[in-house]
Structure formats: C-alpha cells, structure tokens
Design a binder for these strands. Structure first.
Lengths: 113, 113
DNA sequence: ATAGGTACTATCAGAAAGGATAGTGTCAAT
DNA sequence: ATTGACACTATCCTTTCTGATAGTACCTAT
C-alpha cells in the first residue's frame, strides 16, 4: 500500500495520499513553523515571526491559518489587551514529526552531493 | 539531529535539509514519476505520459530534466529512428523511496479526517 | 498520400504562491 | 506626546509554477 495509490491514471494528485501530505506540509514555511512549535510550545505570533526572521506578517498569518484548517495546529486566543494568541501542535501534527525527520535526514545525507 | 538544523533564524529554506528534500520531490508530478519508475523501470517518455494521463509534454519534460539534474533519474538515449529514450531511477532515488512511503502512509491515514 | 508513432521544443497564457508596504486599535512606558 | 508592543489585515506587485496549443524531423504502416 502507500504508493500503490498511483496505479492507473492520475487525475488530481491532491486526491492521492502523497498529494495530501504535500498540500499540508509543502508550503515554503510550514515545515519550519512545525519544527519551531515542536521545540518550544506554545509560541506567540510575534515570537514566531522573530524566530523565523525573513517571513512577512501576511505570509506567516496565511500559513498559520492553513495549518490550523488542516488540523495541525491549535490557536488559542486570550481576550485581553494587549492581545495574546498562542499556537501549539495538535496530536495529528505529532504523528507527522517522524515523517518530517525522515525528510530531513535524507536531505542532510544528500544535500551536498 | 535532522530538524535541529532550524536552530537560529532561517534565511533560505533551500539551504536546510528539509528544504533540499522538498525542492527535489516537491514538484506537482515528481513523486508520481518516481513512483511509476519504481514500479516498472525503465520507462520511455510517451509511456510515462500515457500512464500519468493529465500531464502535458512540456511539464513532463521539465520535471524529468529537474529530476535528472538532481541526480534522481538517469536518461539513456538510443541514437536510432524513431528515437528511443529510457528513464530509470538512480541509487540515490532508491534511498528516497522509504521516505516517500512515509509521506504516503501518513497521508493515507489522515486524508479523510 | 495520409495517418500515426517517436521524443520532444517553443510560445503564450493563466493561476498560485510569496513578498513589500502601510495601516488598525488598545495600552504601557518614557 | 511619542514610541513601542501586541496580533494582525489590506492592498498591490512580482515571481514561480503549471497548462494549452502548435510545431519539428524522421520513419512505418495503410
């Protein structure tokens, strides 16, 4: 199983398991966000922005929204002033971590060849 | 290690192991191509096109070139008429297969939730 | 003579992703 | 009074990705 889902013709990769996984982690910053959250949960918005460095507000905001709607992160808003919002990984995201480790390890071994 | 490469600020994800792996497999069709090659090597150009179905010549051609320049596939041209070109996976690509299996399995388990 | 197969390339167009910049409302500190 | 922190949103622009369509050069089969 797994990759056997590609038997026959492929119409929309989005509908295959691989396509789904990539749609969830394939954004330019998603993996970085997941990693940073895994390291020190929970994290606040501007904190995340500072840690990533070169991302813009808009892009960080849209990536977080997508991760949230894909069920990988939880957003918790504290109704106070100044506002406070915390992000943390869901259980679903935790099951992704070993897979991401695999991607990183393969990358580390093959990057400079 | 692995994901620890994200310590500190991230300038270019391309330079991280994860970014490298995604740059190599992240194209819309690359995973499909790798899977089909893994299933029945070697494969010829038009054969691949027929199996994938909805890809265009141009896109297939460019994805194959990128995979080749990333060292994942080998292109062998037979100087005859009509022309014949065969594609197959390299040893480097074979080491990627378990990682791709991981992506697919996670996707299969989480796709419809 | 026409159609079809081989492996493509070239050109143009549209969609999607990502980035730059500015602004919102409230409060605390200087 | 100004600055800065918080968590964003809105608008516009550029870059990248993907797709549609047509065409090349040669051969074989009908």
């Amino acid at each position: 199983m797994g990759m056997a889902a590609y038997k026959g013709q492929v119409k929309n990769i989005q509908d295959t398991p691989f396509g789904y996984t990539l749609s969830v982690i394939g954004g330019k910053w998603k993996m970085v966000i997941i990693y940073l959250l895994a390291e020190n949960q929970p994290v606040r918005f501007n904190d995340l922005k500072r840690q990533i460095g070169s991302i813009t507000f808009k892009v960080l905001s849209s990536q977080l929204k997508e991760l949230e709607s894909d069920g990988l992160i939880e957003r918790k808003e504290y109704p106070q002033i100044p506002p406070k919002v915390e992000y943390r990984l869901t259980a679903k995201a935790e099951t992704l971590l070993p897979v991401l480790e695999g991607l990183c390890e393969w990358g580390a071994r093959n990057q400079n060849k």
